[in-house]
Nucleic acid binder design. Structure first.
Lengths: 194, 194, 194, 194
DNA sequence: CATGAATGAGCCTTCATTCAT
DNA sequence: AATGAATGAAGGCTCATTCAT
């Protein structure tokens, strides 16, 4: 029989990679990066240990790739028209989008939280984090400046506080946290009425 | 050389245990529970590995004891007269005390954050966390009820959001986070003027 | 597309096998048998891993086939008329041929050296080595006997010493080893003037 | 009970390290660096796998330390008075010492041979080899210069040829190689009569 | 009380080999 | 004939824990 075509192989690779990433997000999210072994990961993804290394060069690499994809998602929520400028309605919708996303991707969110709070994981991702956060922070700062806020830097810090607080509280108990009501409270604080 | 009186023993035990706990807090806080080895810990504390097991039965036990001591500190901030009832000035002062404490115990704070966000560490501490948080949450709820808030449960959740957000943002970059200004913003929200 | 005539098949097989052997000699010679992976080998040969196993049943088999081909070459140098008897001019020319060959096949030579000195590779090739060396050693012995040497066995050992020494020194630094001058020194020792 | 003194621990370490080195030399010498596993090594040395890493930071480190000790031995044979100058009697005795040593340390010798001929092991030891060989080669060169040899560099190369040839032939079959007679032949070539 | 040598289970990773297409 | 995805045994190494002294 003739071998598979390049297109067939590409399709297999793409699907399998997705499959592994999903398994990894779930495992890392529920049990934490350090507590998950490659063996468990492979079993969860329904593949052999060795195959994982056909797609990711190491456990660290796997973490980095998940993180980067997550960062891309978040950036897309913040600045959908990719013009680097944050408009009022974008900030407003950002809340909705991020928390909608989190509700549908609880494991991913938990993983994100555990990434940002585990010092040693931060070490692994350090460069990625710095690069990834530079742009959104700058956009928020310019937004508050343009809106005539008295102390824009504090506003950015406070917004960050609300965000990271809401995320971590929601994700630590998704069933009971009154997400909708909190969102409304926050949006009211910024006069973001629909 | 070796034999000592009972009093000497007790004094040594007390000091040594403190010494180990401090070293552990610093190491866990800066590098994370999983990345710190017992060897490193012992070296940092200036003792031998074997001796550490004289004071703590395992690495997990060490973590639990740190956590319990931390919880006791926090409870002391929230309800200093230990009457189980949260009064307005106590909530007001709670903010100050907690963040004063954090500013002087950054490693401990980082460790706290990493504890609450690492799923596997949560597993280790699960019972302790549930027990420890039941009382303060109840106190806050009764406080907001007594103050006639429309939806006390949401208020508790929102306060928790502000808290955990401020903690995590402050601890992720203690040098630059405008802690004082954020504290004032929060206290204003609750009309906690001095 | 796929089907071909039997003649085409045979031609392809012959070329492919040559191609793989050459790649293997180069890789084994420069990096050593154990450090070269089948993947690298296949890439170097411009084929897939799977195809390699169509021509060689295992990594060991590949090594054995290279070795056998090398042994055939060397035997051809020692006894070109294949009469099993070593004549003076044949021994004389043997030196020239072997070292000419080595100069043009440095990787092969390095591989030969590494084969003979790696105990575990010797294990793999053990039978082949014994069989292959029996004949030339016997021929040399009879040669020195026929030339009336006092202690022919020592002469064989000494000749072997010179040979293996010159090979290993040349191959460990082909650029700087004064091969021609050493050859002349050796040939003078045996009165092998042209 | 009181703990051991520093001297007691040092003694334990020294003995144990020796024990591991000897086991490693024997294993590497008989089966080759790549074919020996840490498990086998540990079993052969009568210790656990983990303990090996208490004394050597890696398998490579173990190889390097063996090699360095071997190089020190060889240098001691070549220039016992450590004046950096090779005298006639020293070169003469060098032969005897080296081959006496090899007869009593066949595994070590085999390991040496396999080191110098395995390309990938060479890579590991590359710097060490360059450094280690610079001095003796320089000494030999100056010796032949001082003795008025016509082409001292070729003499060094030829002596190296004899050496590495004799070593590899002897070590590949220590039982049958006529070492004494070969030594005499070589010493006669250089007029090194006792 | 105090030390660090010693253990061994278990981790991440590699790689020869197989197999469906 | 040809491909590379897939497997799994095995290797090097780490580290919490124990124990003789």
């Amino acid at each position: 029989m003739c071998p598979r075509t390049k297109e067939q192989f590409d399709l297999i690779r793409e699907n399998k990679k997705e499959q592994i990433l999903n398994a990894a997000i779930e495992c890392f999210g529920t049990r934490g990066y350090y507590s998950v072994t490659i063996s468990q990961l492979a079993k969860h993804a329904g593949i052999s240990k060795g195959l994982l290394y056909n797609y990711f060069s190491s456990k660290e690499d796997l973490l980095k790739q998940i993180f980067q994809s997550l960062m891309r998602d978040f950036m897309g929520f913040l600045d959908p028209d990719e013009n680097g400028i944050l408009e009022k309605h974008e900030l407003f919708e950002y809340f909705d989008k991020v928390f909608d996303f989190l509700q549908n991707n609880i494991s991913l969110g938990k993983m994100y939280i555990s990434i940002f709070s585990q010092p040693s994981v931060q070490t692994i991702l350090n460069e990625e984090i710095v690069v990834a956060s530079r742009q959104p922070l700058g956009m928020m700062l310019r937004y508050f400046e343009s809106q005539g806020f008295e102390d824009p830097e504090v506003e950015v810090a406070f917004l960050g506080t609300l965000f990271s607080g809401a995320m971590s509280e929601f994700l630590s108990d998704p069933e009971h946290f009154p997400l909708e009501k909190i969102k409304i409270k926050i949006q009211n604080m910024y006069n973001m009425y629909k």
